[in-house]
Design a protein around this nucleic acid. Structure first.
Length: 1021
RNA sequence: GGGCGUAUAGCUCAGUUGGUAGAGCAUCAGCCUUACAAGCUGGGGGUCACAGGUUCGAGCCCUGUUGCGCCCACCA
């Protein structure tokens, strides 16, 4: 008893004892520091979590929320490349995943955030080789095995560093289940997949054109190719005909009346007039056009035909300005014109083709023109001679040739150009490889053999010039393919590679994947990415999975010479017998990471690959969080391979994040220097601030603009919450060592109100979190914490804990319970977003919950003891809302009345307030409440608000009248609008509840207006 | 050329079944108010890109136009 007394005393005495010395800073009953210092506390808090075992998938599930048979929440987190460090994009993804993980853990679900690192084939090999070279090491002296082992160690080292960064961010991953993509436990499953694909006939080996990086000596995938604009030259080379070709002759006639002849460049012309020019029509000489003229394509110019469209129909380049202008004029003149593309052609000297890579001509096996090109219609099928190498090849027609580019003739080099390779396949052309994998000219290049490609280019041009076969050389800016990692120019060439057939007739991998996707088994956030996903999947082409690298999984393929024959076996283990040697190619890194969704779970025993069963239900995992930029190469492939191996989707939902940009929406890059290092931000503002900065207001799929200003702004929130805790500790919770029991009956309107508010927000936040609307949830919590909780509830707490308050122990107990309940709930809800700060507060304020750490705490249920939803409870909540409205109205009025000071007298003409309510109105509104009659008529000023009228005891009535009449006008307008609406079809057609709402609004507005008018009348007297 | 997105306050962005537009920052006015001046109170500011359509009613749905952006392919 005495103890209890003491507690009550000290709770309020601390404030009152210092009453005398105002300038002296009072001794606060707090252990809280002035500010939360993230850098000092974060690592200790993380250790606390790790020690608690809460991050483990095996952690016991909190029993507070009922059944323990809840589905697990599993994310196999995308493994970052183990060759560097984390960037802001990683922080973003991790923030989302960790927030989801912590949220679901708090819903009493078993949670597995499975971490990992990717070996990242070519990227790592390039990074690692550069490092070795930087130390002066000669790589040729090392064996493949040596390099592999050293690189493995290097990756382990980087992985450790990155793991530390992940922990710094607060990532609540299950570190016991962390994997590296080259881990043998995973690799075996990867190899198995390959073997099965092979057995199913879905793997083939073939000579294909690939992107070849000479520097790294490997083929690289399309997605690892960047394009860079460089200045180059376009060389026009003449290929003489093998035997003379004659052009057809046409008779000459005049241009039709009113026609215009316009040059479109490249020997092409456009005639614009009222009638079409036909093939039989030939333009007269003297107009700059030679005699042999062929006409083709015509396009009508009507009112709604855009000039650009006509130009493209005619295959005229947009740059043909003169033509464009003329066409515009014709369109403006009302249309009805016809534009006809015509051409001149002089075939005697052979065909001219343009190229940026003259050296590849040595491998030409055809020339190609567009089948509709008027200039070359008659030469299709003719033979031309490839100069220098003196090879006779045919002219073919293919609609992939663009009429408008260069001379409209393409030299076809199937071995060294992707388009040419395709054209070659269509037309059955031979493939002649003149550039080797070492970047030097091959045997096929004849006299040029052994030259480097660049050198050969110069020699070829010089030799052609000597023969007079170079028409002209233009400078052009064009994009050349360069290797994303090694930065050298890609040389497309033919090489033997391993492929996965993705659309096999018997067993279509992409077909099955597409089925699963379209079955709706995967929730996609944002939803519109489904279309894009399908689009990519549909357009997937056979997948080259081999790389000529030493870093990665070596293909489980074995060779040996057997009596002069090459024997090939595909198996995980070395086949029995002697003389087997393993394929040297390694897998494309996406082949292994494409199986991440099940290899990881299999490796940690959560998935049985034989039966496909996951005992604890970890597969398929709940969610995948992925940057939208890798949808194509990762999401597609993961779905493809998981569908194949498991006949199941890899995840139940996929969340695509946008990209992180700088504050001006620019891409972050080292060269621009606008990048943000997550480590620096954490050092400066703390992990919580970074997380909030990244998550606030984000929506799936949309890019996030990030600047330091945004983070420093949100770091204010951390201070705010810290101070809220400090206040509660000082005012009411400082003496609570454990949770206060809920009172049997709650008398305080404020207590019911805040608890009800918290429950309402919790329901809403749950909904938002369950539907992956993290940004919305955070924003909701932020607003609630700041506006409702701090600016109203804590102010209320201050009033109710003032020393002048009656020492009512029951009331105090009630207050403490409400404070603990509401603040504990708030911390629980904020914890997924701000884990460190909330945990620190939780640790410092005992009694906020029963779990040893907030990270393990399940969200508390709505209090059963308090039936705030009952009729009486609802009234109580209403009562507090009324108090708030009154105070707001008073404050607002005071400002508009010219800043009435504090302590003025105010009377309320509304429903009576409770004792507590009156006290709150007086304290928070800084007024003295009196009865209406006590305010003398000549000093009364009335302010109408939604619930009634406030009478102010104030002499200045004149200025106020203007304001009142303004309000009246706006009310009248509002009423008019509402009445008009209710008189319209609206009343009959809209939903009844909507109509009712509008009626209610009208009634309130009318009542308010009538009160307002009365007050105005009174003022006028 | 193919696919997709986006346009809302001065800036950065929310706005999920269609019901009279929101936040943060910035700005203006007023506050030392014993948790926080990294704070508090109040205010101003928007024909929701443009043009049509569906609907009683459109920021939201449909069509078209324009600007910006992303991804893929491509410039021989």
């Amino acid at each position: 008893m005495a103890q209890k007394e003491n507690r009550n005393e000290s709770g309020k005495d601390d404030c009152s004892t210092e009453e005398g010395g105002r300038e002296k800073k009072p001794e606060l009953n707090t252990t809280f520091a002035d500010h939360f210092e993230p850098s000092e506390r974060e690592s200790a808090l993380y250790q606390l979590w790790e020690k608690s075992g809460a991050f483990s998938f095996d952690a016991p599930v909190s029993e507070e929320s009922g059944s323990s048979t809840k589905d697990p929440f599993v994310i196999c987190m995308p493994p970052p490349n183990a060759n560097g460090e984390l960037h802001l994009g990683h922080s973003y993804g991790y923030s989302i995943m960790d927030t989801l993980g912590r949220y679901h853990r708090a819903q009493a679900r078993p949670v597995l955030l499975l971490p990992g690192k990717d070996h990242a084939g070519i990227q790592t090999q390039v990074v690692f080789e550069n490092r070795l070279r930087a130390t002066g090491r000669d790589l040729s002296t090392s064996t493949r095995e040596q390099l592999y082992d050293e690189c493995y160690a290097f990756c382990m080292d980087r992985a450790q560093y990155m793991r530390a960064q992940e922990k710094q961010l607060g990532l609540s991953a299950d570190w016991e289940r962390e994997f590296f993509t080259l881990d043998p436990r995973l690799s075996n499953v990867v190899f198995e997949t390959f073997v099965r694909l092979w057995d199913d006939g879905l793997i083939y080996r073939g000579k294909r054109i690939v992107n070849w990086s000479v520097l790294s000596g490997t083929a690289i995938s399309d997605v690892e190719v960047d394009r860079k604009e460089v200045e180059g030259t376009l060389t026009y080379i003449r290929y003489p005909f093998a035997s003379p070709v004659t052009a057809p002759k046409f008779k000459e006639i005049d241009l039709p009346e009113g026609s215009q002849l316009l040059s479109a460049g490249g020997g092409l012309w456009v005639v614009v007039g009222r009638q079409e020019i036909t093939a039989a029509t030939v333009l007269r000489q003297g107009e700059g056009v030679d005699s042999s003229l062929i006409c083709v394509e015509a396009a009508k110019l009507s009112k709604d035909s855009a000039v650009k469209k006509v130009l493209s129909e005619l295959s005229v380049p947009d740059e043909a300005l003169q033509v464009a202008q003329a066409l515009s004029q014709c369109v403006a003149a009302g249309g009805g014109f016809i534009a006809t593309l015509v051409a001149q052609f002089d075939p005697s000297e052979g065909l001219v083709t343009a190229t940026t890579r003259p050296e590849t001509m040595l491998g030409d096996t055809a020339l190609a023109v567009h089948p509709k090109d008027p200039r070359y219609a008659h030469v299709v099928g003719a033979a031309v001679v490839v100069p220098l190498i003196e090879r006779e090849v045919k002219v073919i027609a293919d609609n992939r040739v663009e009429i408008a580019f260069g001379a409209g003739v393409v030299k076809v080099t199937p071995a060294h150009d992707f388009l040419d390779f395709d054209i070659g396949e269509t037309h059955g052309l031979p493939v002649i490889q003149v550039i080797g994998t070492d970047g030097r000219m091959t045997e096929e290049a004849g006299a040029y053999k052994g030259l480097e490609a660049r050198e050969c280019r110069k020699r070829v041009v010089a030799d052609l010039e000597a023969k007079g076969l170079v028409e002209k050389i233009e400078k052009i800016v064009h994009k050349v393919p360069i290797a994303e990692r090694s930065k050298d120019i890609i040389e497309p060439l033919i090489s033997e590679q391993w492929f996965v057939a993705v659309d096999d007739k018997k067993h279509s991998l992409k077909g099955r994947a597409l089925e699963l996707l379209q079955s709706g088994k995967i929730d996609i956030h944002p939803p519109h990415f489904r279309k894009e996903f399908e689009h990519w999947l549909k357009n997937l082409r056979d997948w080259n999975i081999s790389r000529q690298l030493w870093w990665g999984h070596r293909l489980p393929v074995w060779y040996r010479d057997q009596a002069g024959e090459m024997e090939t076996k595909v198996s995980i283990e070395v086949p029995s017998g002697d003389g087997w040697r393993q394929e040297t190619d390694t897998f494309d890194t996406w082949f292994s990471s494409g199986q991440w969704a099940f290899t990881t779970l299999a490796a940690c025993g959560e998935l049985d690959m034989q039966t496909g069963k996951a005992a604890k239900g970890a597969f398929p995992s709940e969610c995948m969080v992925m940057g939208r930029d890798i949808l194509f190469f990762w999401a597609c492939r993961m779905l493809l391979l998981t569908a194949y191996r498991m006949d199941e989707v890899p995840w139940k939902s996929i969340y695509f994040t946008g990209l992180i940009r700088d504050e001006h929406g620019q891409k972050m890059s080292k060269s621009k220097g606008n990048g943000i290092e997550p480590g620096e931000i954490i050092k400066k503002f703390g992990s919580d601030a970074l997380r909030v900065g990244l998550l606030f207001g984000t929506t799936p799929g949309n890019d996030v603009n990030m600047g330091e200003g945004k983070i420093s702004g949100y770091s204010k929130f951390i201070n705010k919450l810290w101070n809220a805790a400090k206040l509660l500790q000082m005012r009411t919770l400082g003496d609570c060592q454990s949770a206060c029991p809920p009172p049997a009956q709650i008398r305080s309107d404020a207590a019911v109100w805040i608890v009800a508010e918290v429950c309402r927000v919790r329901a809403h936040v749950r909904h938002l979190m369950d539907t992956y609307q993290l940004g919305q949830a955070l924003s909701e919590l932020y607003g609630f914490t700041w506006d409702t909780y701090c600016d109203w509830y804590l102010e209320v707490v201050k009033v109710l804990t003032k020393e002048s308050a009656s020492p009512d122990t029951a009331a105090l107990a009630e207050l403490r319970w409400a404070a603990q309940y509401s603040f504990g709930s708030l911390l629980e809800m904020l914890h997924p977003f701000l884990p460190f700060l909330t945990e620190e507060i939780y640790q410092q304020l005992p009694g906020l919950g029963t779990a040893p750490t907030l990270c393990q705490a399940a969200w508390r249920p709505d209090p059963k003891q308090v039936s705030f939803e009952s009729a009486s409870g609802q009234r109580s909540t209403d009562a507090m809302v009324r108090v708030i409205e009154v105070v707001k109205a008073i404050r607002s009025s005071k400002v508009s009345l010219g800043g009435l000071g504090s302590g003025i007298r105010v009377a309320l003409n509304t429903d009576p307030l409770s004792e507590e309510g009156e006290r709150l109105v007086q304290e928070l509104g800084r007024v003295q409440l009196v009865k209406p009659a006590e305010i003398s008529a000549d000093r009364a000023v009335a302010q109408v608000f939604a619930r009634g009228v406030i009478l102010f005891d104030h002499p200045d009535r004149a200025g106020f009248a203007t304001k009142l009449s303004k309000e009246a006008t706006s009310l009248e307008e509002n009423i008019e609008r509402l009445e008009k609406r209710l008189a319209s079809d609206f009343a009959a057609r809209a939903k009844p509840e909507v109509v009712a709402v509008e009626r209610e609004k009208l009634q309130v507005a009318k009542q308010t207006l009538s009160r307002l008018s009365e007050e105005l009348k009174a003022l006028a007297r």
